[in-house]
Computed example of a mutant assay.
Amino acid sequence: MEQIGAFLNAIPAAAANPLALIAYLATVVAWTLVAMRVNRFKILMDRIEKLPEKDRIEAIRIETGRVVPKGMTAEQYLRSRIHLFILIGFLVLCATASFVASMALIRVYEQKARADGYIIEILGEANSSAVDARSPYKSAISTLENGPIMIREAQAEIRPPPSKAELDQMVDQWALQRVPTNEIDRRLRVFAGTDRLKRANEKLAEVAARINSTYEKLANCFRAAECRRGDQFGRMCAAVKKILRNVDEANAAVRAIPGVNFNMSETIANLGGGSMDIDFNAIVVPEVAYLGTVLCGT
């Protein structure tokens, strides 16, 4: 009965696959029947030993409804039945183990094929020209690669802040001209040279979000253990490592700007926020980061 207990403990894991669960339950039933038969014949063997030799075969016929073959003693017959049922139980166990192992291999194959399919969907076939250069993903990758250059060019336009008197004079003049508030805000950014950095931040955040969403389905597949490392896994790791490197280089370029308010919380910055403040929200790609750090070990 210990084997049956082990099978019962394994049912929660087998329940992930309906066919495997059915195989486990069928094995439990088979082992229960085997155990009942074996115990019955063992009890019967203990009892007939107390009977005279001439009455033992007849006792077996009455108890089991079966005739002992000629040439066999009662003990030999009972032992043969015990061995037969143990063999049946062993064969059932082997069949179940083989079936579950086959299902496990099929599941592994499906997990690998699913992951490879998602990766090819993103990167294209390995022996082709990869992703169409005009695709949104490829365009986003190219923009992200140029991130450090965009940031350094924007930094070159940043000017020293004007004095309070100069700032008040500009704002008062525009107010007298009835310039809208949002236009005043834009002019202040242009005057301070922060407008280009803000536009660079918005563009890089946009392409990073596009790249991140491209990998979201693949990342969720690995999180749910529905995907497994397959033939395309190395290509995926090379791609996500490059993306993470480009993100790090872009963020590092921003941190190098004197006086920058670098916001890493993915929320509205607590510091800065004014038209002429040097604000920048960190570029983040959480789904790509999961693939790169958890799976690829970057």
Results as ranks from 00 to 15, higher is better:
residue 144 L to M: 04
residue 69 P to L: 12
residue 186 R to P: 01
residue 7 F to V: 06
residue 164 K to R: 13
residue 33 L to W: 10
residue 15 A to W: 07
residue 16 A to W: 10
residue 26 A to P: 04
residue 179 V to G: 01
residue 78 L to T: 01
residue 180 P to D: 08
residue 123 L to E: 02
residue 237 C to T: 06
residue 284 V to D: 05
residue 80 S to Y: 08
residue 276 M to K: 06
residue 250 A to N: 06
residue 92 V to F: 09
residue 163 S to I: 02
residue 154 A to R: 04
residue 2 E to Q: 15
residue 16 A to Y: 14
residue 184 I to Y: 00
residue 256 A to H: 08
residue 52 P to C: 14
residue 179 V to I: 13
residue 163 S to Y: 02
residue 124 G to C: 08
residue 134 R to N: 15
residue 161 P to D: 08
residue 155 Q to T: 09
residue 169 Q to C: 04
residue 95 A to T: 12
residue 251 N to G: 05
residue 144 L to A: 02
residue 282 A to S: 13
residue 12 P to S: 10
residue 6 A to F: 08
residue 118 Y to H: 11
residue 157 E to M: 10
residue 60 I to V: 12
residue 147 G to Q: 01
residue 245 R to L: 15
residue 235 R to T: 07
residue 294 V to D: 10
residue 145 E to T: 11
residue 191 F to Y: 15
residue 236 M to N: 02
residue 298 T to Y: 11
residue 174 W to Q: 01
residue 226 E to Q: 13
residue 9 N to R: 12
residue 143 T to G: 01
residue 16 A to R: 14
residue 171 V to L: 13
residue 48 I to L: 11
residue 262 F to T: 04
residue 77 Y to A: 03
residue 64 T to V: 08
residue 242 K to D: 12
residue 212 N to R: 07
residue 190 V to E: 09
residue 39 N to Q: 14
residue 245 R to C: 08
residue 218 L to S: 05
residue 59 A to N: 06
residue 82 I to N: 00
residue 284 V to N: 05
residue 98 S to T: 14
residue 240 V to S: 03
residue 166 E to Y: 02
residue 217 K to C: 02
residue 55 D to E: 14
residue 79 R to V: 12
residue 128 S to H: 11
residue 281 N to K: 09
residue 49 E to W: 14
residue 142 S to G: 07
residue 288 V to C: 03
residue 247 V to C: 06
residue 193 G to K: 03
residue 208 A to C: 05
residue 24 Y to C: 05
residue 15 A to H: 09
residue 128 S to M: 10
residue 74 A to H: 00
residue 206 E to I: 10
residue 142 S to W: 05
residue 97 A to Y: 12
residue 157 E to F: 00
residue 144 L to C: 04
residue 271 L to M: 15
residue 137 Y to P: 02
residue 54 K to C: 10
residue 37 R to H: 14
residue 165 A to P: 00
residue 157 E to H: 06
residue 183 E to S: 09
residue 48 I to A: 01
residue 197 L to Q: 00
residue 28 V to N: 03
residue 111 Q to W: 03
residue 155 Q to C: 04
residue 18 P to F: 10
residue 293 T to H: 12
residue 279 D to V: 02
residue 163 S to E: 03
residue 171 V to N: 00
residue 49 E to S: 14
residue 125 E to I: 08
residue 240 V to Q: 02
residue 284 V to I: 15
residue 75 E to G: 10
residue 252 A to Q: 11
residue 157 E to S: 09
residue 235 R to V: 06
residue 65 G to K: 13
residue 126 A to F: 12
residue 173 Q to C: 04
residue 273 G to F: 08
residue 123 L to N: 04
residue 77 Y to S: 01
residue 15 A to D: 15
residue 276 M to V: 13
residue 93 L to R: 05
residue 3 Q to H: 11
residue 168 D to Y: 13
residue 129 S to L: 13
